Amino acid sequence: MNGTEGPNFYVPFSNATGVVRSPFEYPQYYLAEPWQFSMLAAYMFLLIVLGFPINFLTLYVTVQHKKLRTPLNYILLNLAVADLFMVLGGFTSTLYTSLHGYFVFGPTGCNLEGFFATLGGEIALWSLVVLAIERYVVVCKPMSNFRFGENHAIMGVAFTWVMALACAAPPLAGWSRYIPEGLQCSCGIDYYTLKPEVNNESFVIYMFVVHFTIPMIIIFFCYGQLVFTVKEAAAQQQESATTQKAEKEVTRMVIIMVIAFLICWVPYASVAFYIFTHQGSNFGPIFMTIPAFFAKSAAIYNPVIYIMMNKQFRNCMLTTICCGKNPLGDDEASATVSKTETSQVAPA
């Protein structure tokens, strides 16, 4: 074996020389240089400094401006809540542990950190699934009389939490487990061992099928149909120019969110899948650390995309920050905001 397995950890380093120690008790400087741990800490600090204000501001601005409380925005706000879970429940602890060179909070802290990181990532993924379905129903109109309303949005939010908990909670109940990963300063689901005592193999298969592959299939199907429908409608001029423009802008925003999600999470999922299907193979701690920490940047891109591509939200945010006056001169009362007929989201 090219790694060292303990009762509640797996260190990707052979203990042939006897240097491996528990990542809950000793610094892991035999895995990497101390400066590399410091770089990880600096990166986590950057994500906290950027991630908390922008996600909190997204929630605060929506509470302050009633016009932003539209059904589709409920799902987008759900993304902000998920990102805050990741920032507060995961990033802060990882910053602290990186500074110490090992996971100082012990197995219980590892469970909590892994739970919040998994929960936030899964809420984001299933929120994108709900957004894809909403775009498909609104634009492709498989149900001609359907209107995406507040009740549908609330059910969509509830669905994302149920599915996220169905992925994040089982390791706390004994189906699989959370262990330190990479440089042993952050925790995630155990992809490294089969661990029959906790039926780890069945859980990892379940997670990859139900909580990654199926959502991706739904998302790609919905947007494949959507692109075809938008092109067909444009060719036949079935909708008014204003409605077409608004629907295209909202669709473009959501598609960019999906692409950003894939850029952040597919490398992590791919490496995790490789590790799981190549048990005992030779790989270093950096092999998993880089995609794991890169995936954490997902906490800042959704609100950035939303702010950049949604003029109505951008104006409301500037008005809130600048104490009631928009410095760009777009007065809220007089600004013309095009809303789609069904989803009521302003185009950029």
Rank of each mutant, 00 (worst) to 15 (best):
G90D: 10
C110F: 01
V87D: 02
T320N: 12
Q344R: 11
G188R: 04
C185R: 05
F52Y: 09
V209M: 12
T58M: 09
Y178N: 02
V137M: 11
P215L: 05
A295V: 13
V345L: 14
G90V: 11
W126L: 09
R147C: 13
G182V: 02
L88P: 07
N78I: 01
A299S: 12
V20G: 00
M253I: 14
T342M: 15
T94S: 15
C167R: 07
T17M: 04
P347Q: 12
L125R: 11
P171Q: 07
T4K: 07
I305V: 11
R135Y: 02
A292E: 08
P180T: 06
G89D: 04
D190Y: 04
R135W: 06
A117G: 14
P267L: 03
T94I: 09
P12R: 00
G109R: 08
G284S: 15
L328P: 11
Y178C: 05
S186P: 05
F56Y: 09
F45L: 09
D190G: 05
P23A: 00
E181K: 05
P347C: 13
V104F: 13
T289P: 01
A164V: 10
C167Y: 06
C222R: 06
A169P: 01
L131P: 07
Y191C: 10
R135P: 05
R21C: 14
K296N: 12
N73S: 12
T97I: 09
K311E: 10
V104I: 15
P23L: 02
P171S: 03
C140S: 13
R135L: 07
E341K: 12
A333V: 12
G174S: 10
G51V: 09
E150K: 10
M216L: 10
R135G: 08
E122G: 07
T340M: 12
R252H: 11
P170R: 04
S176F: 03
G51R: 05
L47R: 02
P171E: 01
C110S: 00
H211R: 04
G101E: 08
S186W: 08
L46R: 00
P347S: 14
V87L: 14
A164E: 04
F220L: 13
C110Y: 03
G51A: 12
Q344P: 10
T62N: 15
R69H: 13
M163T: 11
Y60H: 14
G18D: 06
G182S: 03
S127F: 04
Y178D: 01
G114V: 02
A299T: 10
V345G: 14
M216R: 00
P171L: 03
P347L: 13
P53R: 02
V210F: 11
G114D: 06
D190N: 04
G188E: 03
P170H: 05
C110R: 06
P23H: 07
P347A: 15
N15S: 04
M44T: 08
N315K: 15
M207R: 08
R252P: 10
P347T: 15
F220C: 13
H211P: 01
M207K: 14
N55K: 07
C187Y: 01
I179F: 01
G106W: 06
P347R: 15
S343C: 14
L57R: 02
P180A: 03
W161R: 06
K296E: 08
G101V: 07
A346P: 15
M216K: 09
Q184P: 00
M39R: 01
Q28H: 00
L79P: 08
L40R: 00
T58R: 08
T193M: 08
I214N: 09
A298D: 11
C187G: 01
K296M: 11
V345M: 13
P215T: 05
T92I: 14
P267R: 00
S270R: 04
S297R: 02
P180S: 03
C167W: 03
G106R: 06
